[in-house]
């Protein structure tokens, strides 16, 4: 027995949920021009859908030359970080209704990395910094026959930084990284933090030494752009500060 209220809701949802949204996309195609162009696309979309769905709609139905990265499309793989309305976000975790669809929604590639085409950037420098901090378990002595045990408290110590999906939203939102690109960047420091504070790991000293470099943690200006940008909610700036503190307490 349906109540009148339910009937009304059903009638409303039966009406078209679609609205017209302007997607303003920063396009670059080295095979056409060495200049970038802002291009507007008008599409019909349900505001409860995501920016990634809007990009799919454009690529599949309007302009097949639009180029962007995405893999899992559910906020796990970290492929589709982009600058949406001037803020780094994952296109697959940003709903259209949350970013004011009345105005044009700007979408551009993340900053500080070379744009290869449209929204695709060269991630190599980012991963180079990641590799530089040795993001793997380093131990000495005999390997245990079973797993390396760890208390719940020891695991909790670095729990926050295990969430990183390497989407580069933090690093490409960092004004120090934008300048000369030599700074390690928040993502690399977060992943170093994950092992530095792991009780099973024995190369923390080495990693701290790497981050004590002139382009290491001391170039952090604590602007919190990285914490704001992180789609996983990692307290990135806090992690960087913890590495700084570890460096100072280690010396004195």
């Amino acid at each position: 027995m349906a109540t009148p209220v339910l009937d009304k809701v059903e009638a409303e949802s039966a009406a078209s949920p679609y609205i017209t949204v302007t997607m303003r996309i920063r396009r670059f195609n080295p095979e056409v021009s060495d200049a970038v162009v802002w291009e507007d696309f008008q599409i019909e979309i349900d505001p409860k859908e995501r920016v990634l769905d809007a990009l799919h709609k454009i690529k599949w139905d309007v302009d097949g030359t639009l180029t962007f990265r995405r893999s899992c499309a559910h906020g796990i793989c970290g492929s589709d970080a982009m600058r949406i309305n001037g803020k780094n976000r994952l296109a697959c975790k940003t709903l259209i209704k949350d970013i004011n669809p009345e105005k044009p929604i700007t979408v551009e590639a993340i900053k500080g990395l070379t744009v290869l085409k449209d929204l695709v950037v060269d991630m190599e420098p980012f991963f180079q910094a990641y590799r530089d901090v040795m993001p793997f378990l380093v131990t000495k002595g005999n390997e245990p026959t079973r797993e390396r045990l760890q208390t719940a408290e020891d695991r909790e110590r670095f729990d926050d930084t295990t969430k990183c999906i390497l989407c580069a939203a933090c690093t490409s939102s960092c004004p120090v990284f934008w300048n000369d690109g030599q700074y390690f960047g928040p993502a690399a420091i977060v992943n170093a933090h994950r092992f530095i504070f792991d009780s099973r790991d024995e190369a923390g000293e080495q990693r701290l030494e790497i981050l004590n470099d002139k382009d290491g943690v001391w170039r952090c200006r604590t602007t919190f752009n990285c914490t704001d940008a992180c789609p996983r909610g990692i307290e990135v700036t806090k992690a960087i500060q913890e590495v700084k503190r570890a460096l100072i307490t280690r010396r004195f």
Partner: peptide
């Protein structure tokens, strides 16, 4: 593609 993106000044690639 150039028709979609619009005319561009300078060298054509």
């Amino acid at each position: 593609t150039s028709a979609t993106i619009g005319p561009v000044e300078g060298a054509q690639y």
